[in-house]
């Protein structure tokens, strides 16, 4: 596919044309933070964002997603994909999306996710500013970003736009793109490479070393109880994670008490009820009863359980969990480096 250059002063007209003809989701400022939201104008777009509060997975896997609509005993599925362009996704989130793509595709394909995903064009963008807890340069290095349709990189005087798929190539028609020169391409490459050195946090070991050691420490109860000692079981670390995809399924009546929906809601394995089964008579069995059990499950899931399926850990180093954790105990770098130093 082709690599293009777009001059700085042509960028807003490119975005305007794209927004006019397609639904475009991009990073926008929300007070002092950033979120992915529908763009109304090019000025809203903040490609200089560090990280968004929630990951972009919500575009395919919304916080609440209707699965089945019912009216008495009549029912129908709710798959209703909307064409959209997800613009300005950092490479760590591209990696995460590729992971959820895989997990929703394997075995029983879930078209409630996949239809939304297929209807989306993803334009990745270079990281212009690194967030305070990021460690994307040192995690899962064996897995590169893939599944995106184009990659846009800010360089001096404009943007280098690499079209990767036909969907990515189709965006070029909205702007005055010209062929990128070799020097522009190499400037883009070094802009992307240089950011890797700016992560404030760093894992000191390889993915396989980590997977091995973390797994071996499964029964190190003391370690997990200590790590989770201050955990509020709030699930914030799960909710902001780009690779978490656990959900609950609930039915909701409409006011008429006849019609309603069956929906899935984001769930969190750190919450107390996540693995709890009612036995009746007020009794329950909780298969991960202690905070340590649940904290361990999250770290295991990120560092070991899914590695075989994903080719690397289910963590991309965005640092969102570290920032979101009320007690500041969720930071995978701290937890994993500590486990690696355990006997």
């Amino acid at each position: 596919m082709n690599v293009y250059f777009l001059k700085e002063h042509d960028f807003n007209s490119f975005m305007s044309k794209m927004i006019e003809s397609k639904k475009v989701i991009g990073p926008v400022a929300k007070k002092s933070k950033f979120v992915f939201d529908k763009l109304e104008s090019p000025e809203q777009l903040r490609l200089d964002y560090d990280v968004t509060i929630l990951p972009p997975k919500k575009e395919f896997f919304p916080t609440c997603q209707k699965l089945v609509c019912f009216d008495g005993n009549k029912f129908e599925g709710c798959i209703n994909p909307q064409e959209k362009i997800l613009f300005g996704v950092h490479f760590y989130d591209v990696k995460a999306i590729d992971m959820t793509d895989h997990l929703f595709s394997e075995k029983n394909q879930d078209w409630n996710y996949l239809a939304n995903r297929k209807a989306t064009t993803i334009v990745a963008s270079n990281i212009q500013k690194v967030s305070g807890r990021a460690f994307f340069a040192s995690v899962g290095k064996e897995v590169g970003p893939k599944g995106h349709d184009a990659f846009i990189t800010k360089i001096n005087g404009g943007y280098v736009f690499e079209a990767i798929t036909d969907k990515g190539e189709a965006i070029v028609k909205f702007g005055k793109f010209e062929k990128a020169s070799d020097s522009q391409k190499s400037e883009a490459q070094s802009a992307n490479e240089s950011m890797l050195g700016k992560c404030p946090e760093k894992l000191k070991y390889s993915s396989s070393e980590i997977a091995d050691k973390v797994r071996k420490n499964f029964t190190n109860e003391k370690l997990w109880e200590e790590a989770a000692h201050d955990c509020f079981s709030c699930g914030s670390c799960n909710v902001v994670c780009p690779t978490c995809y656990c959900f609950d399924v609930q039915d909701d009546w409409n006011l008429d008490q006849k019609t309603g929906t069956r929906s899935r809601y984001w769930d969190a394995c750190l919450t107390e009820d996540f693995s709890k089964v009612s036995l009746g008579g007020g009794h329950a069995e909780n298969f991960r009863e202690s905070r340590g059990d649940r904290f361990r499950h999250r770290i295991m899931r990120k560092a070991t359980y899914l590695n075989e399926k994903l080719g690397g850990p289910a963590c991309v180093g965005c640092g969102r969990c570290s920032s979101a954790c009320t007690a500041d105990i969720a930071d995978p770098v701290n937890v994993i480096n500590k486990i690696m130093e355990a006997k």
Partner: peptide, 24 residues
């Protein structure tokens, strides 16, 4: 028009593949 969620265009193209659709 879907009575329950006011959507105009649920795509039935996916019904065969929708792992959440039950049978009566």
């Amino acid at each position: 028009m879907c009575n329950c969620c006011s959507s105009n265009n649920h795509s039935h193209n996916y019904d065969e593949q929708n792992i959440f659709l039950p049978k009566e």
